[in-house]
Nucleic acid binder design. Structure first.
Lengths: 112, 112
DNA sequence: CGATTGGTTAAGCATATGCCTAACTAATCG
DNA sequence: CGATTAGTTAGGCATATGCTTAACCAATCG
């Protein structure tokens, strides 16, 4: 059962760990088998596996097994969705004529 | 001690929770006092406070207290940093002439 | 001043996370 | 076939997270 489009907070969650962030950055430079990904990390293979599973569950990584080697690659669509969210956020608060003014307004409301 | 520029994975961590994500989206539509932020959420005020503290610790939210009211606002710089990271990632993997080919290459390496 | 309102702190609890080691499976290699 | 090699599963443990309730402080309001 492939996870088609995990919720955004799941994507964020997947990126919320330094090891996983490093894995994503590493995979951004090209696909690699599990053991190659694990090599520079100061932790056991099973631990790396778990991280990869989280990334895969969030739709950030896709992997395929050939013989006894599992090759992993970035699935950029997930990052696209992240980008889309950011853009939406930005358009929202950039629409406000003057954010700072609104903020000070809210702050000074009780001030008279 | 204000956290000047929290690490990226801390920002991701802050956004990795549905409640906090909702808070950020809400704040994107304008600054608001704590109780107003808490109102639509099905949880106690202290819980909301904790979430806000996480967001503030990650540099995503700034707040100021006037009288007995704490007003919170989005700190968009943190989102900018996120955007910058995404752009960097993208430029990295878009540089590769043909990602798919590279992936299949890696996959088929043992294939002959 | 006393009551209310808005927020904050503290303590505790259930679950989730990140990691490890040990044991096991599957694909090559000799 | 037997020995590696690559990955996977299982079980367990220590810490982190998200939430709750109870108690508390500070700024208004009457």
């Amino acid at each position: 059962m492939l996870n088609q489009s995990p919720s955004l907070d799941r994507v964020f969650h997947a990126l919320a760990d330094p090891t996983r962030l490093a894995l994503v950055e590493r995979l951004g430079r090209g696909a690699a088998p599990v053991s190659a990904l694990a090599e520079p990390l100061a932790m056991s293979l099973p631990a790396v596996l778990q991280h990869l599973n989280v990334l895969e569950g969030a739709g950030l990584v896709r992997s395929e097994k050939r013989g006894r080697v599992r090759t992993c690659a970035l699935q950029t669509e997930a990052l696209d969705r992240l980008d889309a969210w950011l853009a939406a956020q930005r358009s929202e608060w950039e629409q406000r004529l003057d954010r700072l003014t609104a903020y000070l307004d809210a702050l000074g409301d009780a001030d008279a």
